[in-house]
Each structure stands twice: as C-alpha cells, then as structure tokens.
Simulated assay, not measured.
Amino acid sequence: MTAPVSLTEAKLFLRVEHDAEDALIQTLIDAAAARIEGDVGLTLESTSPAPLRLAVLMLVLRAYERGEDDMPIRPVEAWIAPYRGVRL
C-alpha cells in the first residue's frame, strides 16, 4: 500500500523547494489522509480517485499555509461526498 500523496507531490503542490520542513509536510499528509479516510470510510492509496487525492493536498495546503490545526472537511466536501459509504 502506498500513500495517497507523496512528499514530492505535496512539496510541488505547496511550491516548497527546500527540505527543512519535510517532516512537517509528511505529518500534514498523514493527518489529512487520515481525516479523509475517517470521513469517507475508505483507505486511500496512490491509485485512489483524483478528487480524494486532491482533497488531501488541499487540506495539507490549508494546514501548511494557514496553520489550521483541526483540518475542517467543509472546504473539500464537494470532492469527497461522492465517495462516502452509506452508514446505517
């Protein structure tokens, strides 16, 4: 199983060219993926649908640039909604 977004992909998305914050960015990737996995009930991988991978990147961006520590799902709701499993 591979991560839904690699560190390299995230750094390109964030336009980060240095290695000084690699650990922070990886932590944000892991947290964002866990947040979305918990919400949709799926395990994300590098082969996951593009909207789910983009949602991970967007949560990483918000946390990295804005310092949001709770990763609200609302900004990526439209991308993840179609992938939610029905819970009874």
Rank of each mutant, 00 (worst) to 15 (best):
L14P: 11
L14C: 14
V16N: 08
V16K: 14
D19N: 15
D19C: 13
E21C: 15
E21V: 14
D22W: 05
D22N: 12
D22V: 03
A23H: 14
A23R: 14
A23M: 11
A23Y: 09
A23P: 14
A23C: 13
L24I: 10
I25E: 02
I25T: 03
Q26F: 09
I29Q: 00
D30H: 08
A31W: 07
A31K: 12
A31S: 11
A33N: 01
A34T: 11
A34G: 10
R35H: 04
R35N: 02
E37P: 07
G38W: 05
D39H: 09
D39C: 11
D39L: 07
V40E: 05
L42C: 10
T43N: 09
L44V: 07
L44T: 06
L44E: 00
E45Y: 04
E45I: 08
S46R: 15
S46K: 15
S46F: 15
T47M: 14
S48G: 01
A50F: 12
A50K: 08
P51K: 01
L52M: 11
R53A: 05
R53W: 05
L54Q: 07
L54F: 13
A55K: 03
L57R: 06
M58T: 10
V60G: 03
R62C: 10
R62Q: 13
A63R: 00
Y64A: 07
E65N: 13
R66Y: 12
G67N: 06
E68L: 05
D69W: 12
D69Y: 13
D70C: 10
M71E: 02
I73C: 08
I73K: 09
I73S: 10
I73N: 08
R74E: 11
R74P: 00
V76N: 00
V76E: 02
E77P: 05
A78W: 10
P82D: 11
P82S: 05
P82M: 02
Y83L: 00
Y83Q: 01
Y83D: 06
R84M: 03
G85I: 05
G85P: 01
G85M: 07
G85Q: 04
